[in-house]
Design a protein around this nucleic acid. Structure first.
Lengths: 343, 343
DNA sequence: TTGAAAGCGCTACCAA
DNA sequence: TTGGTAGCGCTTTCAA
């Protein structure tokens, strides 16, 4: 591995000129720059990471903390990890994985270590222990998700309430008066932050619009096919003409299976809209309208904010809610026996 | 952030003594050590990561490369990432995530950078492009999985063939003459390395033992419930009295659902054994015998080997197969109309 | 437009 | 048993 001295020698310049030529922090004569670039290429030079960390003030590494919660939906989680890595790499940053083995030891360690420039927090719980830690350590921390106590923190998340309310509006506008929300597994309403926000969004907007809204979950810990179908059956039997789905992919499938078994078509007999899904709805047998959770949006913003904390002007602490996006795919229509206009 | 100088001053010793007291690479008088430890604690000292990388020869970081293959089973993948992180931390190593954005750019980069001491390769494909890269770079690389061309590489994996053969033996010993293998999704037999090994293990051992063995997959890309149940139905109709399951968790559930629908009990009417599962079989409605894939075993060994490559005696290149482990849970019995002894 | 040189904070060799 | 100190390879100030 060549070092900066060898490059300098090969190019016939000093090491500082090499450094500046590569960082661009000082103008370098075109001819000089060419010679340096040639030397770099020929020697296969790449600046030593440790030396840069020590001399410079940046490590070019973000830590990503992810708890080992077994009840987290693996594909969703992976999508976020991936989106974070992509966003980081776009800004020349790498991701160091912190699966908090010994509680939050990892966060303290890399902060004390100066191994990372900032910490990104994933899979945030309402009473997340990492909140207290974030306040203690000097390393800037960005939460992807919103803990209950978020005073002074930087948080990023989809505006789940707005997404849920929007879904209700779409159904109400189509003429539905009674709807059902197929939510997540029971535990999600205790251990995660966003499911309650979706539920609140649906219930509150329904009340405002004068709709009756039922709520059901998909299982105790994971999706339970039977329970999911039962929940749907109850909602339909109670008169629901539309469903809002805020659940895992297999639960989506279970709901559609129940409708199919009942000989009900979408949107002919029932309108359906998916809210907060981060998986590919295209794999389902029926095309569904969707207000999705887009991991890349959250992660891009989070990385942006993390970078800002390293710059001259600190970003304001606070919660950044990402406006939802709606994609129509024809799964919403007027209810069968509605007085709403047919078109 | 305190540095080593402040610790040395506070303890009234030289910085080299502090360094040696912390690394243990040189004996330090008990009393001196105590003073140093007190100073470390009081100042909250933690050695600067960049400085250690530069001065020492170790970065205490392993890279973990994981392709973004969308057809990879997310929970299994996560289990491996996690197991790697755990194994690494046990040896004071951190994990840097390389989702190979621009092909294999990440591997080359961290190798040139000297950001990591070794690279761990996950989710290995038969014709994996990372094989060629591993041979080019100076950074030691350990494969968790076995590419077709593995000459000169260090590879670690469960002995899937032995696991499959063992399963056949168990069923043959119980008196079964006709069995079925419920395999993975179709694509897995092209894009992954281990599914064909399980299939080969089952088919070859079946031939040796004189059993007839049928093979079916669970879908084109992902588990398809219908196709899975159809595959099972065909096997049973063709006379299979036992099933070997090498498929995802939802496919396991689908198989059991099919048996249930047919009014068949396990192991009364059909014997079932799961091979190479890395998820929790406890969530299934029926307790199944299992020869599992244990991510932690593979990852522990991989990290061990990675550490060895950094030491004085290099590990031999070659494939390390981890012997399978069998757990009986009462899902194997003699076939209904068998001549085998009832006990 | 370029160079010289002072660190960054640690490890590990050489002395004592 | 301990201390002094020469680097590790880079960034960045100060001078020219």
């Amino acid at each position: 591995m060549a070092n900066i001295n060898e490059v300098a020698e090969a190019a016939g310049v000093s090491i500082s000129t090499v450094s500046y030529a590569l960082s661009g922090k000082r103008p370098v004569a075109p001819d000089t720059r060419r010679r340096i670039e040639a030397a770099v290429l020929e020697l296969g030079y790449s600046p030593n990471a440790g030396a840069r960390m020590l001399a410079g003030s940046r490590t070019q590494i973000f830590a990503l903390t992810e708890p080992l919660r077994t009840d987290t939906h693996a594909p969703t989680h992976m999508a976020f990890v991936l989106a974070t890595a992509v966003a980081a790499r776009r800004n020349d940053y790498d991701i160091l994985l912190l699966t908090d083995e010994q509680a939050q030891a990892g966060m303290s360690r890399v902060a004390a270590n100066r191994l990372v420039d900032a910490i990104l927090v994933l899979d945030v719980a309402p009473d997340d222990a990492r909140v207290a830690l974030a306040r203690q350590i000097a390393t800037p921390t960005v939460f992807i998700g919103i803990p209950d106590d978020n005073e002074g923190l930087i948080c990023v998340d989809l505006d789940f309430e707005a997404a849920a309310a929007w879904a209700v509006d779409l159904l109400a506008d189509a003429g539905h008066r009674s709807i059902g929300l197929v939510g997540q597994a029971d535990t999600a309403y205790v251990k995660s932050n966003f499911p309650p926000r979706v539920r609140a969004g649906v219930l509150e907007r329904s009340a405002e619009r004068g709709l009756s809204a039922a709520f059901g979950t998909t299982g105790v810990r994971h999706t339970n096919r039977q329970q999911t179908r039962r929940a749907v059956a109850e909602m339909l039997d109670a008169g629901a003409t539309a469903l809002i789905l805020h659940c895992a992919d297999d639960a989506h499938a279970a709901v559609l299976a129940e409708l199919d078994d009942r000989g009900m078509s979408v949107p002919g007999d029932v309108s359906v809209i998916s809210v907060g899904a981060s998986f590919d709805l295209g794999a389902l047998p029926v095309a569904l309208d969707s207000i999705p959770l887009v991991p890349q949006s959250s992660c891009d913003l989070a990385v942006d904010l993390a970078l800002q904390t390293l710059g001259p002007d600190q970003p304001e602490p606070g919660v950044r809610l990402i406006p939802p996006v709606y994609t129509a795919r024809g799964s919403i229509a007027a209810p069968r026996s509605s007085e709403a206009p047919a078109d």
